[in-house]
Design a protein around this nucleic acid. Structure first.
Length: 450
RNA sequence: UCCUCAAUAGCUCAUUUGGUAGAGCAUCUGACUGUUAAUCAGAAGGUAGCUGGUUCGAAUCCAGCUUGAGGAGCCA
Protein backbone atom coordinates (compact mmCIF):
# COMPACT_ATOMS: atom_id res chain seq x y z
CA UNK A 1 0.00 0.00 0.00
CA UNK A 2 1.06 3.56 -0.73
CA UNK A 3 2.72 5.36 2.19
CA UNK A 4 3.55 8.86 0.91
CA UNK A 5 0.63 11.25 0.61
CA UNK A 6 0.53 14.93 -0.12
CA UNK A 7 -1.50 17.03 2.28
CA UNK A 8 -4.33 17.59 -0.18
CA UNK A 9 -4.76 13.83 -0.54
CA UNK A 10 -4.76 13.38 3.23
CA UNK A 11 -7.62 15.82 3.72
CA UNK A 12 -9.59 14.23 0.88
CA UNK A 13 -9.04 10.66 2.08
CA UNK A 14 -8.93 11.24 5.80
CA UNK A 15 -11.53 8.63 6.66
CA UNK A 16 -9.56 5.92 4.92
CA UNK A 17 -6.21 7.00 6.30
CA UNK A 18 -7.09 7.53 9.93
CA UNK A 19 -5.04 5.37 12.33
CA UNK A 20 -2.72 4.40 9.47
CA UNK A 21 1.00 5.07 9.29
CA UNK A 22 1.84 7.47 6.48
CA UNK A 23 4.67 9.65 5.15
CA UNK A 24 4.36 13.34 4.37
CA UNK A 25 6.93 15.73 2.94
CA UNK A 26 6.68 19.46 3.45
CA UNK A 27 8.05 22.51 5.17
CA UNK A 28 7.49 23.88 8.67
CA UNK A 29 5.11 26.87 8.78
CA UNK A 30 4.85 27.18 12.57
CA UNK A 31 6.51 25.48 15.53
CA UNK A 32 4.90 25.77 18.93
CA UNK A 33 5.86 24.58 22.37
CA UNK A 34 8.87 22.73 20.93
CA UNK A 35 6.32 20.07 20.18
CA UNK A 36 3.73 21.03 17.59
CA UNK A 37 4.72 21.46 13.98
CA UNK A 38 2.46 22.89 11.35
CA UNK A 39 3.38 21.53 7.94
CA UNK A 40 2.45 22.71 4.46
CA UNK A 41 3.49 21.16 1.17
CA UNK A 42 1.93 23.54 -1.32
CA UNK A 43 -0.73 21.14 -2.57
CA UNK A 44 -3.44 22.93 -0.60
CA UNK A 45 -3.99 26.04 1.45
CA UNK A 46 -4.40 23.86 4.55
CA UNK A 47 -1.60 22.94 6.94
CA UNK A 48 -1.46 19.70 8.87
CA UNK A 49 -0.30 19.52 12.49
CA UNK A 50 2.43 17.09 13.44
CA UNK A 51 2.98 16.23 17.11
CA UNK A 52 6.50 15.23 18.08
CA UNK A 53 7.14 12.27 20.35
CA UNK A 54 9.62 14.29 22.43
CA UNK A 55 10.43 17.95 22.74
CA UNK A 56 12.89 19.04 20.10
CA UNK A 57 14.61 22.40 19.90
CA UNK A 58 16.45 21.74 16.70
CA UNK A 59 13.72 22.26 14.16
CA UNK A 60 13.77 25.58 12.33
CA UNK A 61 10.75 27.23 10.85
CA UNK A 62 10.98 26.93 7.08
CA UNK A 63 12.94 23.69 6.92
CA UNK A 64 11.69 20.91 4.67
CA UNK A 65 11.03 17.57 6.35
CA UNK A 66 10.05 14.02 5.63
CA UNK A 67 7.79 12.77 8.41
CA UNK A 68 6.66 9.24 9.07
CA UNK A 69 3.85 8.89 11.58
CA UNK A 70 0.35 7.87 12.47
CA UNK A 71 -2.64 9.91 11.34
CA UNK A 72 -5.26 10.40 14.04
CA UNK A 73 -8.13 12.62 15.05
CA UNK A 74 -7.84 14.93 18.06
CA UNK A 75 -10.47 17.50 18.99
CA UNK A 76 -12.19 16.93 15.64
CA UNK A 77 -9.03 17.81 13.73
CA UNK A 78 -6.60 15.46 12.08
CA UNK A 79 -2.94 15.42 13.10
CA UNK A 80 0.07 13.18 12.73
CA UNK A 81 1.90 11.65 15.69
CA UNK A 82 5.43 11.50 14.39
CA UNK A 83 7.53 8.37 14.66
CA UNK A 84 10.44 9.41 12.46
CA UNK A 85 11.66 12.70 10.98
CA UNK A 86 14.25 13.39 8.31
CA UNK A 87 15.52 16.88 7.51
CA UNK A 88 16.28 17.86 3.94
CA UNK A 89 19.46 19.86 4.54
CA UNK A 90 19.71 23.02 6.59
CA UNK A 91 18.19 26.47 6.59
CA UNK A 92 20.57 29.42 6.28
CA UNK A 93 19.04 31.26 9.21
CA UNK A 94 20.49 34.65 8.46
CA UNK A 95 19.13 34.51 4.92
CA UNK A 96 15.81 33.15 6.09
CA UNK A 97 15.29 35.72 8.81
CA UNK A 98 16.06 38.59 6.49
CA UNK A 99 13.65 37.27 3.89
CA UNK A 100 9.91 37.56 3.55
CA UNK A 101 9.62 34.00 4.89
CA UNK A 102 10.28 35.31 8.38
CA UNK A 103 7.27 34.53 10.51
CA UNK A 104 5.90 38.07 10.34
CA UNK A 105 3.44 40.18 8.45
CA UNK A 106 5.05 41.69 5.35
CA UNK A 107 3.44 44.25 3.11
CA UNK A 108 2.82 43.49 -0.54
CA UNK A 109 5.63 45.68 -1.72
CA UNK A 110 8.12 43.68 0.37
CA UNK A 111 6.72 40.44 -1.00
CA UNK A 112 7.09 41.75 -4.54
CA UNK A 113 10.73 42.60 -3.96
CA UNK A 114 11.34 38.91 -3.30
CA UNK A 115 8.94 37.56 -5.90
CA UNK A 116 10.96 34.31 -6.09
CA UNK A 117 9.99 33.54 -2.47
CA UNK A 118 6.38 34.71 -2.61
CA UNK A 119 5.11 31.30 -3.65
CA UNK A 120 5.59 30.03 -0.11
CA UNK A 121 3.29 32.58 1.43
CA UNK A 122 -0.31 31.63 2.08
CA UNK A 123 -1.49 34.72 0.24
CA UNK A 124 0.45 34.28 -2.96
CA UNK A 125 0.05 30.51 -3.21
CA UNK A 126 -3.71 31.03 -2.87
CA UNK A 127 -3.69 33.54 -5.71
CA UNK A 128 -1.62 31.18 -7.85
CA UNK A 129 -4.06 28.32 -7.24
CA UNK A 130 -6.90 30.52 -8.42
CA UNK A 131 -4.86 31.64 -11.42
CA UNK A 132 -4.13 28.03 -12.29
CA UNK A 133 -7.74 26.90 -12.09
CA UNK A 134 -8.90 29.83 -14.18
CA UNK A 135 -6.49 28.92 -16.99
CA UNK A 136 -7.50 25.28 -16.90
CA UNK A 137 -11.20 26.12 -16.97
CA UNK A 138 -10.82 28.66 -19.77
CA UNK A 139 -9.36 25.93 -21.94
CA UNK A 140 -11.96 23.43 -20.82
CA UNK A 141 -14.93 25.71 -21.43
CA UNK A 142 -13.79 26.85 -24.85
CA UNK A 143 -12.96 23.31 -25.90
CA UNK A 144 -16.49 22.28 -24.97
CA UNK A 145 -17.84 25.14 -27.08
CA UNK A 146 -15.88 23.86 -30.10
CA UNK A 147 -13.14 26.45 -30.11
CA UNK A 148 -9.65 25.59 -31.30
CA UNK A 149 -6.69 26.87 -29.33
CA UNK A 150 -4.11 28.49 -31.58
CA UNK A 151 -0.73 29.99 -30.78
CA UNK A 152 -0.11 33.31 -32.43
CA UNK A 153 3.42 34.71 -32.78
CA UNK A 154 5.06 36.65 -29.99
CA UNK A 155 7.50 38.31 -32.36
CA UNK A 156 5.65 40.08 -35.13
CA UNK A 157 5.62 43.15 -37.32
CA UNK A 158 2.04 44.21 -36.93
CA UNK A 159 0.62 46.49 -34.32
CA UNK A 160 -3.02 45.54 -33.85
CA UNK A 161 -4.22 48.27 -31.59
CA UNK A 162 -2.54 50.93 -33.63
CA UNK A 163 -1.93 52.92 -30.51
CA UNK A 164 0.36 52.67 -27.54
CA UNK A 165 4.02 51.92 -27.32
CA UNK A 166 5.53 48.65 -28.47
CA UNK A 167 8.74 46.79 -27.61
CA UNK A 168 11.14 46.53 -30.50
CA UNK A 169 12.91 43.25 -31.17
CA UNK A 170 16.29 43.70 -32.78
CA UNK A 171 19.80 42.34 -33.03
CA UNK A 172 21.16 45.60 -34.39
CA UNK A 173 23.81 47.27 -32.32
CA UNK A 174 22.11 50.12 -30.54
CA UNK A 175 25.26 52.20 -30.39
CA UNK A 176 25.63 52.15 -34.15
CA UNK A 177 23.09 53.75 -36.41
CA UNK A 178 19.88 52.05 -35.56
CA UNK A 179 17.63 52.77 -38.50
CA UNK A 180 18.54 50.27 -41.18
CA UNK A 181 16.13 47.48 -40.38
CA UNK A 182 16.96 45.77 -43.66
CA UNK A 183 20.09 44.51 -41.91
CA UNK A 184 18.12 43.31 -38.90
CA UNK A 185 17.34 39.68 -38.13
CA UNK A 186 14.02 39.57 -39.97
CA UNK A 187 14.99 42.08 -42.61
CA UNK A 188 12.45 44.54 -41.27
CA UNK A 189 11.29 46.17 -38.07
CA UNK A 190 9.97 43.66 -35.55
CA UNK A 191 8.24 44.00 -32.22
CA UNK A 192 6.70 41.98 -29.40
CA UNK A 193 3.04 41.38 -30.02
CA UNK A 194 0.37 43.55 -28.44
CA UNK A 195 -2.44 41.21 -29.46
CA UNK A 196 -3.03 38.02 -31.43
CA UNK A 197 -6.36 39.14 -32.78
CA UNK A 198 -5.52 39.72 -36.42
CA UNK A 199 -3.91 36.30 -36.67
CA UNK A 200 -6.93 34.79 -34.91
CA UNK A 201 -9.20 36.37 -37.53
CA UNK A 202 -7.26 34.58 -40.23
CA UNK A 203 -7.45 31.30 -38.33
CA UNK A 204 -11.25 31.26 -38.08
CA UNK A 205 -11.49 31.13 -41.84
CA UNK A 206 -10.34 27.53 -41.56
CA UNK A 207 -11.26 26.64 -37.99
CA UNK A 208 -14.56 28.46 -37.38
CA UNK A 209 -13.93 29.42 -33.75
CA UNK A 210 -10.51 29.95 -32.21
CA UNK A 211 -8.90 31.48 -29.19
CA UNK A 212 -5.42 32.50 -28.20
CA UNK A 213 -4.14 32.56 -24.64
CA UNK A 214 -0.73 34.01 -24.22
CA UNK A 215 1.42 36.89 -23.12
CA UNK A 216 1.21 40.27 -24.81
CA UNK A 217 3.51 43.24 -24.35
CA UNK A 218 3.02 46.97 -23.99
CA UNK A 219 5.84 49.42 -23.55
CA UNK A 220 3.63 52.15 -22.16
CA UNK A 221 5.18 54.00 -19.29
CA UNK A 222 2.13 53.59 -17.12
CA UNK A 223 2.65 53.37 -13.40
CA UNK A 224 -0.65 52.20 -12.01
CA UNK A 225 -2.08 49.28 -10.08
CA UNK A 226 -3.89 48.03 -13.19
CA UNK A 227 -1.12 47.81 -15.79
CA UNK A 228 1.73 45.47 -16.57
CA UNK A 229 4.27 45.58 -19.38
CA UNK A 230 3.81 41.83 -19.88
CA UNK A 231 0.35 40.42 -19.29
CA UNK A 232 -1.78 37.52 -20.41
CA UNK A 233 -4.77 37.82 -22.63
CA UNK A 234 -7.44 35.41 -23.83
CA UNK A 235 -8.63 36.43 -27.27
CA UNK A 236 -11.63 34.77 -28.85
CA UNK A 237 -12.64 35.03 -32.48
CA UNK A 238 -15.88 33.50 -33.70
CA UNK A 239 -17.24 33.07 -37.19
CA UNK A 240 -20.97 33.68 -37.74
CA UNK A 241 -21.37 35.62 -34.51
CA UNK A 242 -23.24 38.90 -34.62
CA UNK A 243 -22.69 41.70 -32.18
CA UNK A 244 -25.55 40.72 -29.82
CA UNK A 245 -24.43 37.12 -29.67
CA UNK A 246 -20.83 37.91 -28.83
CA UNK A 247 -21.95 40.08 -25.93
CA UNK A 248 -24.18 37.31 -24.62
CA UNK A 249 -21.36 34.81 -24.97
CA UNK A 250 -18.85 36.95 -23.10
CA UNK A 251 -21.23 37.40 -20.17
CA UNK A 252 -21.83 33.66 -19.94
CA UNK A 253 -18.13 32.96 -20.18
CA UNK A 254 -17.22 35.25 -17.27
CA UNK A 255 -20.05 33.91 -15.15
CA UNK A 256 -18.89 30.36 -15.70
CA UNK A 257 -15.35 31.23 -14.59
CA UNK A 258 -16.58 32.95 -11.46
CA UNK A 259 -18.83 30.01 -10.63
CA UNK A 260 -15.93 27.61 -10.95
CA UNK A 261 -13.74 29.59 -8.55
CA UNK A 262 -16.58 29.84 -6.04
CA UNK A 263 -16.93 26.08 -6.22
CA UNK A 264 -13.31 24.93 -6.07
CA UNK A 265 -11.34 27.74 -4.39
CA UNK A 266 -13.68 28.74 -1.59
CA UNK A 267 -10.99 28.25 1.08
CA UNK A 268 -8.64 30.55 -0.81
CA UNK A 269 -11.41 33.11 -1.29
CA UNK A 270 -12.17 33.08 2.43
CA UNK A 271 -8.53 33.78 3.19
CA UNK A 272 -8.33 36.55 0.58
CA UNK A 273 -11.51 38.06 1.94
CA UNK A 274 -9.89 38.34 5.35
CA UNK A 275 -6.62 39.63 3.95
CA UNK A 276 -8.12 42.28 1.69
CA UNK A 277 -11.00 43.15 3.99
CA UNK A 278 -13.44 42.97 1.07
CA UNK A 279 -16.57 40.81 0.92
CA UNK A 280 -15.40 39.05 -2.22
CA UNK A 281 -17.57 35.95 -1.97
CA UNK A 282 -20.78 37.92 -1.76
CA UNK A 283 -19.62 40.15 -4.61
CA UNK A 284 -18.79 37.16 -6.81
CA UNK A 285 -22.05 35.39 -6.05
CA UNK A 286 -23.92 38.54 -6.92
CA UNK A 287 -22.16 38.76 -10.25
CA UNK A 288 -22.87 35.15 -10.97
CA UNK A 289 -26.59 35.48 -10.25
CA UNK A 290 -27.46 38.87 -11.67
CA UNK A 291 -27.67 40.10 -15.25
CA UNK A 292 -24.97 42.51 -16.31
CA UNK A 293 -26.18 46.04 -16.98
CA UNK A 294 -26.21 46.81 -20.72
CA UNK A 295 -26.02 50.43 -21.72
CA UNK A 296 -25.01 52.29 -24.86
CA UNK A 297 -22.16 54.78 -24.91
CA UNK A 298 -24.59 57.58 -25.77
CA UNK A 299 -26.70 56.88 -22.71
CA UNK A 300 -23.63 56.65 -20.46
CA UNK A 301 -22.58 60.11 -21.55
CA UNK A 302 -26.09 61.43 -20.91
CA UNK A 303 -26.22 59.88 -17.46
CA UNK A 304 -22.84 61.22 -16.45
CA UNK A 305 -23.77 64.68 -17.65
CA UNK A 306 -27.00 64.52 -15.68
CA UNK A 307 -24.90 64.40 -12.51
CA UNK A 308 -22.94 67.41 -13.55
CA UNK A 309 -23.54 69.40 -16.71
CA UNK A 310 -20.96 69.05 -19.48
CA UNK A 311 -18.70 66.89 -17.34
CA UNK A 312 -17.81 64.73 -20.29
CA UNK A 313 -17.90 65.46 -24.00
CA UNK A 314 -19.41 63.02 -26.47
CA UNK A 315 -16.50 61.35 -28.21
CA UNK A 316 -14.09 61.10 -25.31
CA UNK A 317 -13.21 57.79 -23.74
CA UNK A 318 -14.80 56.73 -20.48
CA UNK A 319 -11.82 56.95 -18.16
CA UNK A 320 -11.30 55.60 -14.66
CA UNK A 321 -12.73 58.78 -13.21
CA UNK A 322 -16.05 58.28 -14.99
CA UNK A 323 -16.11 54.55 -14.33
CA UNK A 324 -16.05 55.39 -10.64
CA UNK A 325 -18.95 57.81 -11.06
CA UNK A 326 -20.91 55.11 -12.89
CA UNK A 327 -20.44 52.58 -10.10
CA UNK A 328 -20.74 54.90 -7.13
CA UNK A 329 -23.35 57.41 -8.19
CA UNK A 330 -25.38 55.97 -11.04
CA UNK A 331 -25.68 52.18 -10.77
CA UNK A 332 -24.54 51.53 -7.20
CA UNK A 333 -24.96 47.78 -7.51
CA UNK A 334 -21.46 46.41 -8.04
CA UNK A 335 -22.64 44.57 -11.13
CA UNK A 336 -20.48 44.68 -14.28
CA UNK A 337 -21.45 47.17 -16.93
CA UNK A 338 -21.55 46.38 -20.61
CA UNK A 339 -21.04 49.61 -22.52
CA UNK A 340 -21.59 49.32 -26.28
CA UNK A 341 -21.54 51.38 -29.47
CA UNK A 342 -18.50 53.50 -28.79
CA UNK A 343 -17.54 56.41 -31.05
CA UNK A 344 -15.65 55.25 -34.11
CA UNK A 345 -12.81 57.69 -33.62
CA UNK A 346 -11.65 56.23 -30.28
CA UNK A 347 -11.71 52.58 -31.37
CA UNK A 348 -9.35 50.58 -33.62
CA UNK A 349 -9.69 50.25 -37.40
CA UNK A 350 -11.06 46.70 -37.51
CA UNK A 351 -14.41 47.35 -35.77
CA UNK A 352 -17.66 47.28 -37.76
CA UNK A 353 -19.36 50.61 -38.27
CA UNK A 354 -22.94 51.16 -37.24
CA UNK A 355 -25.42 52.67 -39.70
CA UNK A 356 -24.93 56.13 -38.17
CA UNK A 357 -21.29 55.87 -39.35
CA UNK A 358 -20.01 57.57 -36.19
CA UNK A 359 -20.23 54.66 -33.75
CA UNK A 360 -18.94 51.10 -34.03
CA UNK A 361 -20.23 47.71 -32.92
CA UNK A 362 -17.86 47.53 -29.98
CA UNK A 363 -18.38 46.74 -26.33
CA UNK A 364 -16.42 46.85 -23.11
CA UNK A 365 -17.30 45.01 -19.93
CA UNK A 366 -16.37 47.19 -16.99
CA UNK A 367 -16.02 45.62 -13.56
CA UNK A 368 -16.20 47.42 -10.26
CA UNK A 369 -12.75 48.10 -8.71
CA UNK A 370 -10.64 46.94 -11.67
CA UNK A 371 -12.24 48.53 -14.72
CA UNK A 372 -12.27 47.04 -18.18
CA UNK A 373 -11.84 43.28 -18.23
CA UNK A 374 -13.26 42.54 -21.66
CA UNK A 375 -13.17 44.54 -24.85
CA UNK A 376 -14.62 43.26 -28.08
CA UNK A 377 -16.51 43.97 -31.26
CA UNK A 378 -18.09 42.69 -34.39
CA UNK A 379 -15.40 42.98 -37.06
CA UNK A 380 -15.61 45.11 -40.18
CA UNK A 381 -16.08 42.98 -43.27
CA UNK A 382 -15.75 45.61 -45.96
CA UNK A 383 -12.31 45.78 -47.57
CA UNK A 384 -12.65 49.43 -48.42
CA UNK A 385 -13.87 50.50 -45.03
CA UNK A 386 -10.98 48.76 -43.26
CA UNK A 387 -8.52 50.31 -45.67
CA UNK A 388 -9.93 53.78 -45.09
CA UNK A 389 -10.09 53.33 -41.32
CA UNK A 390 -6.48 52.20 -41.25
CA UNK A 391 -5.31 55.09 -43.35
CA UNK A 392 -7.17 57.58 -41.15
CA UNK A 393 -6.04 56.17 -37.83
CA UNK A 394 -2.49 55.08 -38.63
CA UNK A 395 -1.11 57.82 -40.81
CA UNK A 396 2.54 56.99 -40.26
CA UNK A 397 2.17 53.23 -40.41
CA UNK A 398 2.93 51.00 -43.32
CA UNK A 399 -0.19 49.57 -44.95
CA UNK A 400 1.84 46.67 -46.33
CA UNK A 401 2.12 45.17 -42.87
CA UNK A 402 -1.61 44.49 -42.76
CA UNK A 403 -2.19 43.77 -46.40
CA UNK A 404 -2.57 40.09 -45.60
CA UNK A 405 -5.32 41.02 -43.15
CA UNK A 406 -7.14 43.11 -45.73
CA UNK A 407 -6.95 40.25 -48.20
CA UNK A 408 -8.96 38.05 -45.83
CA UNK A 409 -11.95 40.14 -46.91
CA UNK A 410 -11.48 38.98 -50.47
CA UNK A 411 -12.88 35.58 -49.45
CA UNK A 412 -16.36 37.02 -49.04
CA UNK A 413 -18.48 38.86 -46.55
CA UNK A 414 -18.05 36.49 -43.63
CA UNK A 415 -19.38 38.13 -40.53
CA UNK A 416 -17.54 37.43 -37.31
CA UNK A 417 -16.88 38.84 -33.86
CA UNK A 418 -14.42 38.50 -31.04
CA UNK A 419 -13.18 39.86 -27.77
CA UNK A 420 -10.13 39.95 -25.55
CA UNK A 421 -10.10 39.24 -21.86
CA UNK A 422 -7.39 40.65 -19.62
CA UNK A 423 -6.44 37.60 -17.60
CA UNK A 424 -4.71 39.42 -14.73
CA UNK A 425 -7.56 41.91 -14.44
CA UNK A 426 -9.98 39.03 -14.01
CA UNK A 427 -7.77 37.45 -11.34
CA UNK A 428 -7.40 40.83 -9.70
CA UNK A 429 -11.15 41.18 -9.49
CA UNK A 430 -11.74 37.64 -8.23
CA UNK A 431 -9.03 37.79 -5.58
CA UNK A 432 -9.70 41.38 -4.53
CA UNK A 433 -6.02 42.26 -4.84
CA UNK A 434 -5.44 45.98 -5.14
CA UNK A 435 -2.34 45.75 -7.31
CA UNK A 436 -2.16 43.76 -10.54
CA UNK A 437 1.53 43.11 -9.83
CA UNK A 438 0.43 40.70 -7.11
CA UNK A 439 -1.55 38.33 -9.32
CA UNK A 440 1.23 37.33 -11.75
CA UNK A 441 4.27 35.28 -10.66
CA UNK A 442 6.96 37.61 -11.95
CA UNK A 443 5.52 41.04 -12.79
CA UNK A 444 7.15 43.28 -15.38
CA UNK A 445 6.52 47.00 -15.20
CA UNK A 446 8.52 50.14 -15.95
CA UNK A 447 11.85 49.96 -14.18
CA UNK A 448 11.37 46.40 -12.95
CA UNK A 449 12.46 43.10 -14.45
CA UNK A 450 13.97 41.38 -11.40
C1' U B 1 5.16 60.68 -18.10
C1' C B 2 2.63 64.56 -14.71
C1' C B 3 0.65 66.00 -9.57
C1' U B 4 0.54 64.95 -4.12
C1' C B 5 2.57 62.27 -0.09
C1' A B 6 6.19 58.95 1.98
C1' A B 7 11.24 56.24 3.00
C1' U B 8 13.94 55.26 10.76
C1' A B 9 16.26 47.85 13.73
C1' G B 10 14.79 41.64 9.90
C1' C B 11 9.15 43.36 9.97
C1' U B 12 5.22 47.14 11.56
C1' C B 13 5.72 51.81 13.39
C1' A B 14 7.01 55.99 17.34
C1' U B 15 10.77 59.96 17.89
C1' U B 16 5.39 67.41 18.56
C1' U B 17 8.80 73.57 16.33
C1' G B 18 17.04 70.99 14.71
C1' G B 19 20.23 69.06 20.59
C1' U B 20 22.77 61.37 23.19
C1' A B 21 17.70 56.66 18.53
C1' G B 22 12.43 54.08 21.06
C1' A B 23 8.44 50.10 21.30
C1' G B 24 5.91 45.60 19.73
C1' C B 25 6.79 41.37 16.85
C1' A B 26 10.84 38.33 14.54
C1' U B 27 15.99 36.52 16.10
C1' C B 28 19.33 34.37 20.10
C1' U B 29 19.59 32.08 25.39
C1' G B 30 16.58 29.81 29.22
C1' A B 31 11.50 27.63 31.04
C1' C B 32 7.15 24.84 29.45
C1' U B 33 3.80 17.69 26.81
C1' G B 34 -2.22 20.08 24.03
C1' U B 35 -0.09 24.48 21.56
C1' U B 36 -2.58 26.57 17.23
C1' A B 37 0.04 34.14 14.59
C1' A B 38 1.37 29.86 21.93
C1' U B 39 3.07 32.07 26.51
C1' C B 40 6.80 33.78 30.33
C1' A B 41 12.05 35.70 31.67
C1' G B 42 16.62 37.72 29.70
C1' A B 43 20.10 39.27 25.63
C1' A B 44 21.54 41.22 21.14
C1' G B 45 20.19 44.34 17.13
C1' G B 46 20.27 51.11 13.81
C1' U B 47 26.16 55.57 9.38
C1' A B 48 17.72 57.13 9.85
C1' G B 49 17.03 55.22 1.15
C1' C B 50 21.42 57.53 -1.65
C1' U B 51 24.44 62.09 -2.89
C1' G B 52 25.41 66.91 -1.68
C1' G B 53 24.24 71.62 0.99
C1' U B 54 22.78 74.99 5.36
C1' U B 55 24.24 74.78 10.75
C1' C B 56 28.42 74.72 16.54
C1' G B 57 24.99 70.54 15.84
C1' A B 58 20.48 67.23 10.91
C1' A B 59 16.17 61.35 11.20
C1' U B 60 14.18 66.46 11.49
C1' C B 61 15.62 72.23 7.09
C1' C B 62 17.09 72.74 1.47
C1' A B 63 18.44 70.55 -3.58
C1' G B 64 19.08 66.37 -6.77
C1' C B 65 18.54 61.14 -7.45
C1' U B 66 16.31 56.19 -6.27
C1' U B 67 12.12 53.48 -4.64
C1' G B 68 7.04 53.10 -2.97
C1' A B 69 1.64 54.67 -2.10
C1' G B 70 -2.60 57.50 -3.94
C1' G B 71 -4.49 60.30 -8.08
C1' A B 72 -4.16 61.71 -13.54
C1' G B 73 -3.06 60.09 -18.52
C1' C B 74 -2.72 55.46 -21.48
C1' C B 75 -5.07 50.93 -21.63
C1' A B 76 -6.52 44.99 -20.89
Amino acid sequence: MKKYYNIKEIFINKKKLINKNIIIKGWVKYFRNNLFLEINDGTTIKNIQVVLKKKNKNIDIGITLKIYGKLREYNKKIEIISLYIKKYGKIDKEYFNNSILQNKFHNLYKLRQQSYLRFRTKLFSSIMRIRHLLSIKIHKYLNKKNFYYINTPIITNNDTEGIGEIFNVTILNIKKKYNNYKDDFFGCKANLTVSGQLEAESAILGLNKVYTFGPVFRAENSNTNKHLSEFWMVELEMMFYKFKNIIKFSEKFIKYLIKVILKYNIEELKYLEKYNKIKIIKLLKNIYIKKFIKISYNLVIKKINKIKKNLILWGSDISTKYEKILFKKIFKKNIPLIIYNYPKKIKPFYMKSNKDNITVKSFDIIFPNVGEIIGGSEREISYIKILNNFKKKNKNKNINNIKWYLNLRKLGKIYHSGFGLGFERLIQFITGMKNIRDVIPFPRYPGNIN
